[in-house]
Amino acid sequence: MEDLTRLIISHERIENIKNNYLELTNEEAHYINKVMRIKNGKEIFIANGMGSLWKAIKVKNDFLEISQLKNPHLFQEKEIYLLGIAVVIPKSGFDDILKMCTEIGIDFIQPLFSERQVNKNLNFSRKILRWNSIIKEAVEQSERLWKPSIFNSMDIIEWLKSRDNQERVSISITRENTHYDLNQWLRKHQDFVNKKGGIFWNVIGPEGGWSSKEVDFFNKNNTTFVKLSDTILRTSTASINASSILNQWRIDLKLRN
C-alpha cells in the first residue's frame, strides 16, 4: 500500500461530511501543515477506526476533499475473535502499555483498580481523554484500520461480575501453581471459538500482587489462573507479553480455519 500520511477521523464526523469536504480541527491542521508539511493537492489517507480507509486530498490548510466517500479505498471486516487486556493501572508505564497493546492488535483495553494498587489518585476524566489520544496516535502509526476501545476504570471484582457468556477471562498470576500457561488456556477454548465470536481477556494484576480477598473471589468464581512466564514480570512487560500471545493465537486460528 502507498506510504501516505494517515489521519484518524471519528466515524461520526465522516458520516456528517457534506459535499465531500472535511473541515480539520486546529490540532489536525497543525499536524498536517506544520508536522507532516503536507502541501495543497497532495494525498493522505483518512481512516475512521472502524475498518474503512479513504484517500483524501488537501485542498486548503484546514480542509480535505474525500471524493469517493461512499466507496472506501479499503475496508476490513471486524475480527470474529476479539482480544482484551485488563490491567491494574501501574504507578508508571501505562501510556506505553496503551501504545504497544494497540500496535500489537488488542481490541479492548480495560483499566482496573485493585486493593494493592500503587497509584489510586488519578483524575480519570482527564486521563481517559489522554489515553484515547495515545491510542489514536498508535493506530495511525501502526496503520491499523480498527481502533481499540478503552473503557472507564473499574474495580477488578466488579468488572469480573459484569462479564457475560460471550467473554472468556484468564487471570495472570505469579508464585502460584497453575494448570495452564496462557497459550494452553487459549487452546483449551477451541470448542468455544468454533461457535464463532467472543472476547478473550487476560487480566494483569498490580505490581504488589492480588490481595487474599481478590484471590478468594477468583477461586469461588472458578476464574482460571494462567502463567505468562517463569520469571516475575513488571506490569508493562506482562501486558505486552500477554497481548503478543493473544494476537499470535488469533493469527494461528485464522490460518487453521
Rank of each mutant, 00 (worst) to 15 (best):
N119Q: 05
N119P: 02
K120L: 01
K120T: 07
K120F: 02
N121V: 01
N121W: 02
L122Y: 09
N123L: 01
N123M: 07
S125P: 04
S125Q: 13
R126M: 09
K127R: 14
K127M: 11
K127N: 10
L129M: 09
L129S: 11
R130C: 07
W131G: 09
S133Q: 01
I134S: 06
I134D: 00
I135A: 04
K136P: 02
A138E: 00
A138M: 00
V139S: 05
V139D: 00
Q141W: 07
Q141K: 06
Q141H: 08
S142Q: 13
E143V: 07
E143K: 12
R144G: 11
R144P: 08
L145K: 09
L145D: 10
K147V: 08
K147G: 07
P148C: 12
P148F: 12
P148V: 13
S149K: 15
S149E: 14
N152W: 10
S153T: 13
M154R: 03
M154Y: 06
D155E: 09
D155I: 01
I156M: 12
I156L: 03
I156E: 04
I156N: 01
W159C: 06
W159V: 09
W159R: 00
L160K: 03
K161I: 11
K161E: 01
S162A: 14
R163A: 04
R163P: 03
R163H: 08
R163F: 12
D164I: 05
D164T: 07
N165F: 10
N165H: 11
Q166C: 12
Q166S: 15
Q166I: 14
E167I: 10
E167Q: 12
R168W: 11
R168T: 09
V169S: 07
S170A: 15
I171H: 14
I171F: 15
I171K: 13
I171S: 13
I173T: 11
I173V: 10
I173G: 01
T174S: 04
T174M: 11
R175H: 15
R175Q: 15
E176Q: 15
N177R: 14
